[in-house]
């Protein structure tokens, strides 16, 4: 990974992407709320152990970690393992 700097200034990226990021975060929060309501309302089984929700939680945690390569790391969380 060459890790070349972005041609855009960080402040420019923030200016352009802030509303989009904000919107995606609220959508994500609303989706988590929806899942909670579905479990509570229908008294259905917990999804805590469902592999997809486990991966989603792992990805959210990875998102908050510092350092480059977050997108690659999250892609790998959602990828099948490969045994060389």
């Amino acid at each position: 990974m060459s890790n070349q700097p972005s041609p855009l200034a960080a402040s420019d990226i923030l200016d352009k992407q802030f509303l989009t990021v904000r919107s995606k975060l609220i959508d994500l929060a609303a989706t988590f709320d929806r899942l909670d309501r579905a479990v509570a309302d229908k008294n259905s089984a917990s999804i805590d152990t469902n592999l997809r929700i486990v991966k989603i939680r792992e990805a959210v945690a990875r998102l908050l970690e510092a350092g480059p390569g977050r997108a690659e790391a999250i892609q790998l969380i959602f990828s099948l393992p490969y045994d060389e």
Partner: peptide
């Protein structure tokens, strides 16, 4: 599309 509410989130509010 980006600010305010989406159709999905509006449906959530109607459900709640």
């Amino acid at each position: 599309p980006t600010t305010k509410a989406t159709p999905s989130r509006a449906a959530d509010m109607v459900e709640i």
